[in-house]
């Protein structure tokens, strides 16, 4: 429904969007411009002693893209992102499909459990999982030791692969509910009579799923998958707090924590800004299909 033209020349609507626009401009627009400027400047030792930063053109970008630090971080970020997104998506969709087959009581109970996991604040979830995997007090080590395995005093955060395994468990634990609920909701929208008609025409369960159910939930699946990729690309809190709990930072940085370490901790705002611009570009590339789809939907709307 395109809104009917109400007083086309009125200044009122512009006045109405003004406060929001100003807030966005000040808190996001200005920093974006500032970041481009920062990324072209050198912040070295002299600047830490109060000298104004010097212009070095694309020097930061050259150092960043030509250096050995960025690419392992990018590779790790992308692998972590897709691994987590795929796991979350697979488990979430599978669960949504199973939910339709559960008996009522179990389904409601499962949904309450999922809701709790979803509602948990990320820092609280992080602390609890750190506790579960704690070297000395953790129930995971206790349980594995109880099974006769040698996990007494095992440190889960010291090896990068097991560090990322713990991070993945938390991320997936927190993200599956959104996928499961959303896909389950879209499954309930699948027209019952069409499924029945297909059954009468002799379609088996698998055929009904592939030719009737899947096409009608495909748009939701696409959006959910894209959102997972976008969200898992920017995992910060989980990595940051696991690093503070004892992970080795150099081998566990993802883009977010890498930029944080370069800029906020290291004081090299030039390099950090260049890295942030790189992350922005990567995000734009990965989210472009989603944005295009949303705008298309908006036009039809």
């Amino acid at each position: 429904m395109p809104p009917p033209a109400v007083r086309r020349r009125s200044l009122l609507p512009l006045g109405l969007v003004l406060p929001a626009s100003l807030a966005l401009g000040l808190a996001l627009g200005y920093p974006l411009v500032r970041q481009v400027v920062l990324s072209l400047q050198e912040f070295g030792l002299a600047q830490q002693f109060g000298q104004p930063p010097t212009w070095i053109g694309l020097g930061n970008y050259r150092e960043l893209l030509g250096g050995d630090d960025l690419w392992p971080v990018v590779r790790r970020t992308v692998v972590f992102c897709f691994a987590n997104a795929a796991l979350t998506f697979g488990i979430g969709v599978g669960l949504a499909l199973l939910m339709a087959r559960m008996s009522r009581v179990v389904r409601v109970a499962t949904q309450v459990g999922l809701l709790l996991a979803w509602a948990m604040p990320v820092v609280a979830a992080m602390t609890v999982f750190q506790f579960l995997f704690d070297r000395d007090y953790g129930v995971v080590n206790a349980a594995l030791t109880g099974l006769g395995l040698d996990y007494d005093g095992h440190n889960w955060l010291i090896e990068p692969w097991s560090f990322f395994m713990v991070a993945t468990i938390v991320v997936v634990w927190m993200s599956v509910p959104f996928v499961a609920f959303t896909v389950h909701a879209s499954l309930t929208q699948v027209p019952e009579d069409v499924v029945e008609a297909a059954e009468i025409d002799g379609a088996g369960a698998w055929q009904r799923f592939v030719h009737v159910v899947l096409p009608s939930i495909r748009p939701v699946l696409v959006v959910v998958a894209m959102l997972q990729v976008i969200w898992d690309l920017r995992v910060f809190t989980q990595i940051y707090s696991l690093q503070r709990a004892g992970g080795t930072t150099d081998e566990t940085h993802l883009l977010g924590t890498y930029i944080h370490a370069l800029g906020i901790k290291g004081g090299d705002f030039g390099m950090a800004s260049a890295a942030a611009m790189f992350m922005l570009a990567l995000t734009v590339v990965l989210t472009a299909p989603y944005i295009v789809m949303m705008i298309k939907q908006e036009r039809e709307h």
Binding site: A27, L233, I259, M279, L280, Y290
Partner: peptide, 29 residues
């Protein structure tokens, strides 16, 4: 409720901003 110049730009900007990760701007913020 209104149709005005810049309405589209405003909507598009909102959509794009939504996707920007905090980590990509927090240095300059």
């Amino acid at each position: 409720r209104f149709r005005f110049r810049g309405r589209w730009a405003f909507i598009a900007v909102l959509l794009v901003i939504q996707m920007i990760p905090a980590e990509a701007l927090f240095i300059s913020q």
